[in-house]
Simulated assay, not measured.
Amino acid sequence: MEILMAILIGIMIMCAVYLILSKSLLKIIIGTVLLSHGVHLLLLTMGGLPKGEEAPPLLGEHSVNGYVDPLPQALILTAIVISFGVTAFFLVLAYRAYQELGTEDMESMRENEDYVA
Protein backbone atom coordinates (compact mmCIF):
# COMPACT_ATOMS: atom_id res chain seq x y z
CA MET A 1 0.00 0.00 0.00
CA GLU A 2 2.90 2.35 0.71
CA ILE A 3 4.21 1.92 -2.84
CA LEU A 4 0.83 2.90 -4.29
CA MET A 5 0.68 5.93 -2.01
CA ALA A 6 4.24 6.94 -2.96
CA ILE A 7 3.33 6.80 -6.66
CA LEU A 8 0.16 8.82 -6.06
CA ILE A 9 2.07 11.41 -4.00
CA GLY A 10 4.74 11.68 -6.71
CA ILE A 11 2.12 12.24 -9.42
CA MET A 12 0.31 14.87 -7.33
CA ILE A 13 3.51 16.79 -6.58
CA MET A 14 4.62 16.52 -10.21
CA CYS A 15 1.31 18.00 -11.41
CA ALA A 16 1.50 20.69 -8.73
CA VAL A 17 4.97 21.80 -9.80
CA TYR A 18 3.82 21.91 -13.45
CA LEU A 19 0.84 24.09 -12.51
CA ILE A 20 2.89 26.38 -10.27
CA LEU A 21 5.33 27.05 -13.14
CA SER A 22 2.52 28.15 -15.50
CA LYS A 23 1.66 31.74 -16.42
CA SER A 24 -1.95 31.75 -15.23
CA LEU A 25 -2.64 32.95 -11.71
CA LEU A 26 -5.52 30.50 -11.19
CA LYS A 27 -3.35 27.57 -12.29
CA ILE A 28 -0.73 28.65 -9.76
CA ILE A 29 -3.36 28.66 -7.01
CA ILE A 30 -4.62 25.20 -8.03
CA GLY A 31 -1.00 24.01 -8.05
CA THR A 32 -0.43 25.20 -4.49
CA VAL A 33 -3.63 23.46 -3.35
CA LEU A 34 -2.54 20.24 -5.08
CA LEU A 35 0.92 20.53 -3.54
CA SER A 36 -0.53 20.89 -0.05
CA HIS A 37 -2.74 17.82 -0.58
CA GLY A 38 0.29 15.86 -1.75
CA VAL A 39 2.20 16.85 1.38
CA HIS A 40 -0.77 15.84 3.54
CA LEU A 41 -0.77 12.39 1.96
CA LEU A 42 3.00 12.21 2.40
CA LEU A 43 2.71 12.95 6.14
CA LEU A 44 -0.05 10.39 6.52
CA THR A 45 1.97 7.72 4.72
CA MET A 46 5.11 8.49 6.71
CA GLY A 47 3.09 8.10 9.91
CA GLY A 48 2.47 4.49 8.97
CA LEU A 49 -0.53 2.86 7.40
CA PRO A 50 -2.25 0.20 9.54
CA LYS A 51 -1.85 -3.35 8.32
CA GLY A 52 -4.61 -5.90 8.59
CA GLU A 53 -7.32 -4.86 11.02
CA GLU A 54 -7.93 -1.20 11.66
CA ALA A 55 -6.13 -0.39 14.87
CA PRO A 56 -7.53 2.12 17.39
CA PRO A 57 -5.62 5.40 17.69
CA LEU A 58 -5.61 5.26 21.51
CA LEU A 59 -4.78 2.56 24.01
CA GLY A 60 -7.50 1.49 26.42
CA GLU A 61 -7.37 -0.52 29.61
CA HIS A 62 -6.42 -3.66 27.73
CA SER A 63 -3.10 -3.73 25.98
CA VAL A 64 -3.31 -3.60 22.19
CA ASN A 65 -0.48 -4.99 20.08
CA GLY A 66 -0.63 -2.35 17.37
CA TYR A 67 -2.07 1.12 17.29
CA VAL A 68 -2.07 4.05 14.92
CA ASP A 69 0.01 7.04 15.93
CA PRO A 70 -2.36 10.04 16.35
CA LEU A 71 0.37 12.69 15.94
CA PRO A 72 0.51 12.66 12.09
CA GLN A 73 -3.27 12.86 11.98
CA ALA A 74 -3.25 15.90 14.26
CA LEU A 75 -0.50 17.54 12.18
CA ILE A 76 -2.43 16.91 8.96
CA LEU A 77 -5.62 18.34 10.44
CA THR A 78 -3.74 21.49 11.43
CA ALA A 79 -2.12 21.69 7.99
CA ILE A 80 -5.50 21.34 6.26
CA VAL A 81 -6.89 24.29 8.22
CA ILE A 82 -3.83 26.41 7.45
CA SER A 83 -3.87 25.51 3.74
CA PHE A 84 -7.59 26.38 3.58
CA GLY A 85 -6.86 29.83 4.98
CA VAL A 86 -3.93 30.38 2.61
CA THR A 87 -6.02 29.23 -0.37
CA ALA A 88 -8.83 31.62 0.57
CA PHE A 89 -6.29 34.45 0.82
CA PHE A 90 -4.79 33.56 -2.59
CA LEU A 91 -8.23 33.50 -4.21
CA VAL A 92 -9.13 36.92 -2.81
CA LEU A 93 -5.73 38.26 -3.87
CA ALA A 94 -6.19 36.89 -7.40
CA TYR A 95 -9.70 38.35 -7.64
CA ARG A 96 -8.47 41.75 -6.51
CA ALA A 97 -5.54 41.64 -8.94
CA TYR A 98 -7.93 40.75 -11.76
CA GLN A 99 -10.19 43.67 -10.82
CA GLU A 100 -7.30 46.14 -10.78
CA LEU A 101 -5.28 44.90 -13.75
CA GLY A 102 -7.91 43.22 -15.92
CA THR A 103 -5.85 40.09 -16.52
CA GLU A 104 -4.78 36.92 -14.77
CA ASP A 105 -1.68 36.34 -16.91
CA MET A 106 1.49 36.77 -14.86
CA GLU A 107 3.52 38.28 -17.72
CA SER A 108 0.82 40.84 -18.46
CA MET A 109 0.80 41.78 -14.79
CA ARG A 110 4.58 42.34 -14.87
CA GLU A 111 4.34 44.50 -18.01
CA ASN A 112 1.72 46.83 -16.52
CA GLU A 113 3.51 50.16 -16.05
CA ASP A 114 0.83 51.87 -13.93
CA TYR A 115 1.41 49.80 -10.79
CA VAL A 116 5.21 49.63 -10.73
CA ALA A 117 6.57 51.04 -7.48
Rank of each mutant, 00 (worst) to 15 (best):
M1N: 09
I3L: 15
L4A: 15
A6K: 14
I7R: 09
L8C: 11
G10V: 02
G10C: 05
I11R: 04
M12E: 09
I13E: 06
C15Q: 07
V17E: 02
Y18E: 04
L19V: 00
I20Y: 01
I20S: 01
I20C: 04
L21W: 02
L21V: 04
K23F: 05
S24D: 14
K27T: 01
K27D: 09
G31A: 06
T32D: 07
L35T: 03
L35K: 03
L35V: 04
H37Q: 11
H37K: 02
G38S: 13
L41N: 11
L43F: 14
L43M: 15
L43Y: 08
L44I: 15
L44Y: 11
T45S: 13
T45F: 09
M46K: 10
M46I: 14
G47H: 04
L49H: 07
L49I: 15
L49R: 10
K51A: 15
K51H: 14
K51P: 00
K51E: 15
G52F: 10
G52S: 12
E54C: 02
A55N: 08
P57L: 15
L58C: 05
L58Q: 08
G60I: 05
G60E: 06
E61G: 15
E61K: 05
E61D: 08
H62D: 09
H62V: 11
H62C: 00
S63W: 09
S63G: 07
S63I: 12
S63M: 11
Y67E: 10
V68S: 08
V68L: 12
V68C: 00
V68Y: 04
L71P: 00
P72N: 10
A74D: 03
A74T: 05
A74L: 13
L75K: 07
I76P: 01
I76W: 03
I76N: 08
T78C: 11
T78S: 12
I82F: 13
I82A: 14
S83K: 01
G85T: 03
G85S: 05
V86Q: 03
F89D: 00
F90Q: 07
L91I: 15
V92T: 06
V92E: 04
A94L: 04
A94D: 03
A94M: 07
Y95I: 09
R96M: 08
Q99N: 08
E100V: 05
E100D: 05
T103K: 02
T103L: 06
D105G: 01
E107N: 06
E107A: 06
S108P: 00
M109C: 06
M109H: 01
E111S: 14
E111R: 12
N112R: 06
N112C: 09
E113P: 04
E113I: 12
Y115L: 13
Y115A: 10
V116S: 12
A117H: 08
